[in-house]
């Protein structure tokens, strides 16, 4: 992959869902340790990633998110036993749907970490911001801009 961004002035808007256990604690630890991560990410709390609903993921894209990701407890260490596995299964289903829709499944991802892993929390934000910067804006926004431009002409 090229390291030169295709959309130089583009700042991704990313929605991240995190669970109330490891995800929240990792965010809190990152704050306490003053670990910096891109400001492109807006966080939405979930009681557990087992509460992930494909409706939420699609709604984020429909409302303009360029990328979406989930932060969950490590696999095998979910506070609700297998909630994160359920979340992962839904993320995988949503990725296929996004491919079929034309948004692209690679705009969605899931990261697993324990509450003490502040660096992993920041890395997830960096990884997604870099990936989305390379992929460019949400195709819905691109299409809307093209349509508006055509109407002007």
């Amino acid at each position: 992959m090229s390291s030169v961004p295709v959309y130089p002035s583009f700042e991704p808007e990313i929605t991240a869902f995190y669970c109330g256990y490891c995800g929240y604690m990792a965010a809190d630890t990152a704050g306490a340790l003053k670990v910096q991560y891109p400001a492109n990410v807006k966080f939405v709390p979930l009681p557990c990633t087992g509460k992930t609903d494909i409706r939420y993921l699609l709604a984020a894209f429909e409302q303009g998110a360029d990328g979406v990701y989930l932060v969950a407890c490590p696999l095998g260490n979910c506070h609700h036993v297998r909630g994160n596995e359920r979340g992962l299964a839904r993320v995988n289903r949503a990725k296929k749907l996004l491919d079929e829709i034309g948004i692209g499944g690679n705009r969605l991802d899931m990261f697993f970490m324990s509450g003490s892993q502040a660096q992993a929390f920041a890395d997830a934000a960096r990884t997604m911001t870099a990936r989305i910067r390379e992929l460019g804006p949400n195709p819905l926004k691109v299409k809307a801009a093209q349509t508006a431009k055509q109407k002007e002409q």
Partner: peptide
């Protein structure tokens, strides 16, 4: 709801 959202987005991308 998922299908409605999918069709709204897909139809928008189809023009």
């Amino acid at each position: 709801a998922v299908l409605a959202s999918s069709l709204r987005m897909a139809s928008q991308l189809d023009g």
